[in-house]
Design a protein around this nucleic acid. Sequence first.
DNA 1: ATAATTGCAAAGTCTTTGCAGTTTG
DNA 2: CAAACTGCAAAGACTTTGCAATTAT
Lengths: 156, 156
Amino acid sequence: MTEQRADDEHVEVLLARLRRSGGRVTSARRALLASLLAADGHHLTAQDLAEAVQRAAPDVHLSTVYRALDSLEEKGIVAHTHLGHGRAVYHLADEPHQHLVCERCQAVVEVPADVFAELATTLEGAYGFVVGAHHFAVVGRCAACAGAQSEPAAGS
Amino acid sequence: MTEQRADDEHVEVLLARLRRSGGRVTSARRALLASLLAADGHHLTAQDLAEAVQRAAPDVHLSTVYRALDSLEEKGIVAHTHLGHGRAVYHLADEPHQHLVCERCQAVVEVPADVFAELATTLEGAYGFVVGAHHFAVVGRCAACAGAQSEPAAGS
DNA sequence: ATAATTGCAAAGTCTTTGCAGTTTG
DNA sequence: CAAACTGCAAAGACTTTGCAATTAT
């Protein structure tokens, strides 16, 4: 698959960015970015990522994943969001999108950032508040659950 | 202050609602609702609430606060939101508002729910997603921090 | 009475930290 | 070589749970 090749290149670009920012390129980080890229659109927890990374490099510890994510986030390469409850989910920072989280079935719907453009303008005008580009979650009911009447299947 | 009297009445109304839903009225719950009401607009964590409650009833345990909040939430009297990081904040469900959280200074700005009405309509039309009335947090930069360039003071 | 609630202590999740040993630039 | 990174184990913050005793209805 030529997609794999494209992804590999993308990883190298991100690593170059990391190095330029004073970070160091290690196999753990390479695997981490590859996993993030492969997930493409999925929302991965640190746990998920650790498992993915460990498929390629079994010795990488969960705490290393946390620290690598922190580091990558500091450099603006990765971003995280809290989708309800407690766990954070991570994604590459270069895919601007917002999340709609269903409070009942936990489904996550991604929405292109520009859907929020109008709201962002309003908020900035009225409150001087600048909406973050990658850190946004709206909780509600997805289409499938919107009709259901039972109480939320799980709290957010 | 006549305000105190109004609050007391409000607490009783909520307790009546609780009782009608099959819940039981206890001094812990009365104190909890009173604290929630007194906070009026502040965002209290379970910890905060426990401390407030304990000023009136020193024996109330943190876990009781958690359980009481769960119970009240189930009955639609209380709602919680996650403002970044992990901790949840609670408030009475009858004060519809949304939260803008500053990712840099952690300030919380409250916004009347209707500011989001247009977005809600859009999301429902395009995705069938029904935005929750009381469970919503937008992360970004508050007016004071919007200009600042340093990295976020604390992650959300 | 009897089902809900509570206090307390213990356990659980998710994340962070201290340290000594490795690796990268 | 110096600074950054890593593995591991231990600690931390926040929340949930099991149980026996208590209390509201």
